[in-house]
Amino acid sequence: MNLLIANDIGNSETKMFIDGTLIKQPSVVKRLLSKPNVSEPDVHKNINNLLDELFVHVSSKAIKRDGLYFIGKRANITSKVENMNIKLGKKSTHDIPILMTLSMIAGRSVQLEFQKDGKLPKSTSVEVDMTTAIPASEFSTYQAKLLEKRFTEEPHVVIVHVGETTVTVTIEFKTVKVTQEGIPALYSLIENENGILEDYNRIYKKMAQPKDFANKKILHVDIGDGTTEYIYTIGLNPITDACSGAKRGVGHATEEAIQLLKEDTGGFLEVNRQQFMNILRDSTHNLHDLAVQHMEEARFSQAKKILEDVQEKYSDIGGNVDVIAVYGGGSIQFKEELYSDLLDFANNVHCEVLWIPPEYAVDMNVRGLKVINEKILKKRVKG
């Protein structure tokens, strides 16, 4: 089996296009010392729910220690899971991006084999061509090559548990291209539908189309979970020396809010970032109102820091900016605290704000990686 993959390895969520199908998982894992009991014997149900119930054994020289793991959604319903340390960063050297990538590819491969043959194979082999990205605050040619090598140096073996049955998946990466976060989003923007500019055109009384941004000078503000990336592009070219990142984002606001909520519960509450976000989304949770209150306070603090970063970056590049483009999951979380102030700043310095609508904002990078796959990587692989 040959797979073409666009892989956005986020601190909060891992998003992948695997041969055109978008798959998402929380970026969390739980290491196990023994196999859990199997409660569902029906193979069809297990296949349908496989990615939500992902239980694997990963053997790879790219990680520090082989072992049994719950992955993503399956891990997130348990306590004491491992997630990315957003204060330290370093996606290129951390094991979680490798574990998430290998496990999601293996799980999806098993589903595809079952769809093709109507039965589970004992084993299967997968060849992968993949694009992915790391933060600008971490990016260098050395770090990019390091992550590429972790994937490509040796084949990886993932044993996927499907109920009481196992399937051994051998994954070999033929081509891996690592770029810096923010760059793929530009490709996503210019190849997108006109709806992505609805708010922009209304505010500035224009009839712009996405392709019009291919020649603009853009300061990208990609607000993620662990980092906010400030990418400066002229046309389709990143100006590397003017690109940077800072440890700002939803994850940092969430950790501040978790600490406040922990204090309000006498120090007894132990939740990770993903579990705290579940409390925020669940209006029936007994801690929901407190969580909302503390998250509002933490968002205000993070939004102020991001605004100051944008102002400093604008000054550093000499004001040579047509548009400040804001996207990423954090753009949804922080809009109330940041949007108005950013518009005022942009008006004062004679540039514009493109605040990507929420239905597009979260997947800008993974969709841009997919564009890079289709326009660049696929041709390179065939060529």
Rank of each mutant, 00 (worst) to 15 (best):
V250Q: 02
A253Q: 04
A253F: 02
A253S: 15
T254Q: 04
E255R: 13
A257M: 09
I258T: 12
I258L: 08
Q259V: 03
Q259N: 15
Q259K: 13
L260A: 15
K262A: 04
E263M: 07
D264F: 01
D264G: 07
T265P: 14
G266C: 03
G266Q: 05
G267R: 01
G267E: 03
F268Y: 04
F268T: 14
E270W: 00
E270R: 09
V271M: 06
R273V: 06
Q274T: 11
Q274A: 06
F276I: 01
F276E: 08
I279S: 02
L280R: 05
D282Q: 04
S283G: 05
T284S: 13
T284K: 06
N286K: 05
L287C: 07
D289C: 02
L290A: 12
A291C: 03
V292E: 12
H294L: 01
H294N: 11
M295H: 02
M295E: 05
M295W: 02
E296G: 14
E296Y: 03
A298F: 02
A298C: 05
R299G: 02
R299H: 04
S301M: 03
Q302M: 08
I306F: 04
L307C: 10
V310C: 08
V310N: 03
Q311N: 09
Q311F: 01
E312Y: 00
K313F: 00
Y314D: 10
S315D: 10
I317R: 07
G318T: 13
G319S: 14
N320C: 05
N320D: 15
V321M: 03
V323A: 06
V323L: 05
A325Q: 13
A325T: 12
Y327D: 03
G329M: 02
G329D: 02
G329H: 01
G330S: 06
G330E: 02
S331A: 10
S331I: 03
S331K: 05
I332E: 10
Q333I: 07
E337C: 09
L338V: 12
Y339M: 14
S340W: 07
D341L: 11
A346Q: 12
A346N: 13
N348D: 15
N348A: 13
V349C: 11
C351D: 12
C351T: 15
C351Q: 04
V353I: 15
V353R: 01
W355L: 06
W355S: 13
W355K: 06
P357E: 02
P358W: 00
